[in-house]
């Protein structure tokens, strides 16, 4: 009887030769299953010194910013055209005057700011004054070179606002403290703490859709209508420069 061409030996010897191939197959299957994750990670680690420099990244970011600016401008123009059609206030965008705060009385009986721009720069009584983030008050009186601003926090200050999320109107009333009071007109309110408060889109006295404050707390059982306390977005006691929206 001729000898077999296969090496003789116990059956387990063949399995011992086979298991590295099986392990390799399992590894390759895992690579396939993970969509080559290990290889990509290894490649990323090895090729990191040769990645594109920050210049291209900045270029992409600035391109993105430019694109957003262009989109914003187009939307602004579109919005202005639609508001013209509806005969509403034109809103923000044009006619803003930057003014320095030259005197500040945010913690006194008269809560007001004095601005370093006046009637000669186009400011007039009733103009909206915008701090970084949102509305802080309205121009009360002007001289040729200065303007006096009554802050939203001043006692007796009243401004019509609305809550964009629930589309409900309210009155923002200054009570002296840094947090004005929000008096709702409807009895059934759906607003909740954390909601943004802005000027009304149909406002004729103030620029529409201007952020004003964030609701801090609500008392839905208040009589005759629910009340709330808001935190202004722009803090008047820390503002050094403001934008005045001229009309």
């Amino acid at each position: 009887m001729a000898a077999s061409q296969w090496p003789a030996g116990p059956r387990w010897r063949g399995g011992r030769r086979l298991w590295p191939w099986l392990a390799l197959f399992v590894v390759l299957a895992l690579v396939r299953w993970s969509k080559g994750a290990g290889f990509v990670d290894a490649y990323a680690l090895l090729s990191r010194p040769f990645w594109p420099g920050s210049a291209q990244k900045e270029w992409l970011q600035s391109a993105g910013t430019l694109e957003q600016k262009a989109q914003l401008e187009l939307l602004r123009q579109d919005n202005a055209r639609l508001r013209d059609l509806l005969e509403l206030n034109r809103g923000s965008g044009d006619g803003q005057v930057a003014a320095a705060v030259i005197s500040r009385n945010a913690a006194a009986w008269w809560q007001q700011l004095e601005l370093g721009q006046g009637a000669s720069a186009g400011l007039a009584s009733g103009d909206a004054v915008i701090g970084p983030g949102g509305l802080i008050g309205r121009v009360q009186s002007v001289t040729p070179t200065t303007a006096r601003v009554k802050l939203l926090t001043a006692p007796g200050s009243k401004v019509g606002v609305w809550v964009p999320r629930t589309r409900q109107h309210a009155l923002l009333v200054g009570v002296g403290t840094a947090r004005p009071q929000l008096r709702f007109i409807d009895k059934d309110i759906k607003a909740r703490p954390g909601d943004l408060v802005s000027t009304s889109p149909a406002s004729t006295l103030l620029p529409p859709n201007l952020p004003v404050a964030v609701i801090q707390s609500l008392n839905s059982r208040a009589v005759p209508a629910p009340k709330g306390v808001v935190q202004l977005i722009a803090a008047p006691e820390a503002v050094d420069w403001v934008q005045v929206q001229t009309r």
Binding site: A107, W109, P155, G156, V173, V175, G176, T177, R179, Q181
Partner: peptide, 27 residues
């Protein structure tokens, strides 16, 4: 001076919110 201003806010301008009272006395 402070009490006279507070009385003017309360009697002349008719402002009498609890928060306003707290602020006025603090001031």
């Amino acid at each position: 001076v402070g009490v006279s201003l507070w009385l003017q806010l309360r009697l002349v301008q008719g402002l009498d919110a609890p928060l306003l009272q707290h602020w006025a006395w603090h001031l």
